[in-house]
Amino acid sequence: MSNLPLRQCLLAETLGTAGLLLFGTGAVVVNEQTQALGHGGIAAAFGLVVFLLIQSLGPVSGSHVNPAVTIGFWVAGRFPGRRVLPYVAAQLMGGVLGSGLVALVAAPGSGLGATRPAHTALEALGVETVLTFWLMLVILRVTAGSKEQGLLAGLAISATVGLEALVAGPLSGASMNPVRSLAPALVGGHLEAAWVYIVGPVAGVLLAVLCDRVLRIQPPITATEPASA
């Protein structure tokens, strides 16, 4: 966790989340207008922007840019509770800022890259829970100890985002992030099924923290029998 003053961390979270929405959902909007990126290009855009944010802003704030990740780190005992609400507020502010910028170039009637269930809300809820579980588990495993600021950690996390967006994007939008879904929904005025993208990611990170704790359990030490004389 960063020891920098809270104001610097909040600025980093605001800028980072704005960048995530600007380039991630911006890719969706550009593809709506040009069909130049395709589904794979959109997934790659999300993975790439996450990698850049981790490498550039990670040393300042941890580059959570996701309220679910912030909550997950707090529950895991790796983030102070007094910073949770300020981080979430900064992320929401950054997300709305990013979506507002995307709206400036979007065509009339655009969803601004908002996530919506492809079928039922319950199916999307299950998908978002599973996706966020894997994302948070990867984050917890690759940021432990000396690996916290490593290049490979950033690659692993961004690759997870890109892979999950590629595979599950057509099902639920592959949000894994309440602000990533809420910001375009708020700016565009479409809050249908918004609860899915809050409940699913939060449930996913809680399950991931539990799983990480189980994986960290050390095997019992077996006493060695003394050698016979």
Rank of each mutant, 00 (worst) to 15 (best):
P178V: 02
L21V: 06
S61K: 04
I221L: 10
Q91I: 14
A103S: 14
E192S: 11
A168T: 15
G95Q: 07
W195M: 00
A114V: 14
V161G: 12
R180H: 14
V214F: 05
V130F: 01
A168H: 13
G81V: 15
S99A: 15
H119T: 15
G162I: 14
T25F: 04
F46P: 05
L21T: 05
N177Y: 14
G189F: 09
G62D: 07
P170W: 09
V161D: 12
V187I: 11
A76V: 08
V102W: 10
L10G: 04
T132K: 01
V199F: 04
A45T: 09
A90D: 11
R213N: 04
G204D: 05
A124L: 11
L135M: 14
L155S: 13
G111P: 03
H64L: 02
G145T: 02
G41N: 08
L15Y: 04
L52C: 15
F46H: 13
I217N: 11
G40N: 11
F51H: 12
L131R: 03
P184V: 06
L112T: 04
A159M: 12
Q35Y: 04
A76L: 07
Q35P: 01
S56L: 13
V88N: 01
V127R: 02
V202Y: 03
I139G: 07
Q91W: 07
G145V: 05
L97R: 12
Y87E: 12
T115S: 06
V142A: 00
A89W: 08
A194F: 03
L207V: 10
L163T: 08
L152N: 13
V161P: 09
G62R: 11
R213W: 03
A208N: 01
V88C: 13
P170V: 12
V105W: 06
A203Y: 14
E123C: 03
A27R: 03
Q91L: 10
N66S: 07
V127Y: 00
L20Y: 06
T160S: 05
A107K: 11
A193R: 12
L85T: 12
P220N: 06
I139N: 02
L182F: 03
T25R: 01
V138G: 09
E13D: 00
A18I: 05
S110K: 01
L21F: 09
G173M: 14
H39L: 15
A76C: 07
P226E: 06
Y197C: 10
A27E: 07
F23E: 05
V102T: 09
